[in-house]
Amino acid sequence: MTKGIGSASLGLVVALCMTGQASAKPEFEYGPVFSSFGKHAPVEDVSFTENQTFEVAFDVAKAASPGEVNRKFESLARFINMHVANGVKPENLSLALVVHGSATEEMLKTELFKQRKGQPNGNEVLLTALIEQGVKVIVCGQSAAAHGVEKSALIDGVVMDLSAMTAHARLAQKGYSVNPF
């Protein structure tokens, strides 16, 4: 019986392709806020109310390979680009990035990161751009202590809280949800 279902499914896919009902893969694009980060694809028939707001915290604990952009940081840029592209006002996005664990060292200014890792910090440009768009970038003080990261070594605009747990608790009290991706 499973074989019949598989054949029927294959037949349906072939029929859809032949009738033009199956479409090509959409192009992922940058923008409209970030021109070098946060590629996203258009999705038809998605709408938001005129005053739609989002209060979302992103949690990142794992570092990228030295010198590379952390994919989780770029997810935040994608969130901004895709929502603004679909009509959400930038001023209606209240976003935070809470960083801990091995990703803590990615909060270092490039020259200090390079001293430790032998590569420039591939995240500084993106993090600075996110901060310029109003994203709160918060590093865990406990992880900073564990990794020997001092406040003075942080990228301009990054703030330190007592812990990642504290930062998330404070954000939750302000109505932020935690992005699970």
Score class of each variant (00 low, 15 high):
residue 1 M to G: 12
residue 3 K to C: 01
residue 3 K to R: 06
residue 4 G to R: 09
residue 8 A to F: 15
residue 10 L to E: 10
residue 18 M to N: 04
residue 18 M to I: 08
residue 19 T to A: 13
residue 20 G to L: 13
residue 21 Q to M: 14
residue 21 Q to T: 10
residue 22 A to I: 07
residue 24 A to S: 07
residue 24 A to K: 08
residue 26 P to C: 09
residue 26 P to K: 06
residue 26 P to Y: 02
residue 26 P to A: 04
residue 28 F to P: 00
residue 32 P to V: 06
residue 34 F to I: 07
residue 34 F to S: 04
residue 36 S to R: 13
residue 36 S to V: 04
residue 38 G to C: 09
residue 43 V to Y: 03
residue 45 D to L: 13
residue 45 D to M: 13
residue 47 S to C: 09
residue 50 E to P: 06
residue 51 N to Y: 10
residue 52 Q to L: 10
residue 53 T to P: 04
residue 53 T to H: 09
residue 58 F to R: 06
residue 59 D to L: 15
residue 61 A to E: 13
residue 62 K to L: 13
residue 65 S to L: 14
residue 65 S to V: 09
residue 68 E to Y: 07
residue 69 V to N: 01
residue 70 N to C: 13
residue 72 K to Y: 10
residue 74 E to G: 01
residue 75 S to Q: 14
residue 84 V to P: 00
residue 86 N to K: 05
residue 87 G to W: 04
residue 90 P to N: 07
residue 93 L to Y: 02
residue 97 L to A: 12
residue 98 V to A: 08
residue 100 H to T: 01
residue 101 G to T: 08
residue 101 G to K: 08
residue 102 S to C: 12
residue 102 S to H: 08
residue 103 A to E: 05
residue 103 A to I: 02
residue 107 M to I: 14
residue 107 M to Q: 09
residue 110 T to S: 15
residue 111 E to A: 12
residue 112 L to H: 07
residue 112 L to F: 07
residue 113 F to W: 04
residue 113 F to Q: 01
residue 114 K to Y: 00
residue 115 Q to I: 08
residue 116 R to I: 00
residue 117 K to W: 08
residue 118 G to A: 06
residue 120 P to R: 09
residue 120 P to D: 14
residue 121 N to L: 03
residue 122 G to E: 05
residue 122 G to W: 11
residue 123 N to A: 11
residue 125 V to A: 15
residue 126 L to G: 04
residue 127 L to I: 15
residue 129 A to S: 15
residue 131 I to P: 11
residue 131 I to T: 14
residue 132 E to K: 15
residue 132 E to G: 11
residue 136 K to T: 12
residue 138 I to P: 14
residue 139 V to G: 15
residue 141 G to E: 06
residue 142 Q to A: 14
residue 142 Q to W: 11
residue 142 Q to K: 11
residue 144 A to V: 11
residue 145 A to S: 12
residue 145 A to F: 10
residue 147 H to P: 00
residue 149 V to T: 09
residue 150 E to F: 09
residue 152 S to A: 13
residue 152 S to N: 09
residue 152 S to W: 00
residue 153 A to E: 11
residue 154 L to M: 10
residue 155 I to W: 03
residue 158 V to G: 04
residue 159 V to P: 04
residue 161 D to A: 15
residue 162 L to C: 01
residue 165 M to G: 10
residue 168 H to G: 00
residue 170 R to C: 03
residue 171 L to E: 03
residue 174 K to Q: 12
residue 174 K to I: 03
residue 177 S to G: 12
residue 179 N to C: 13
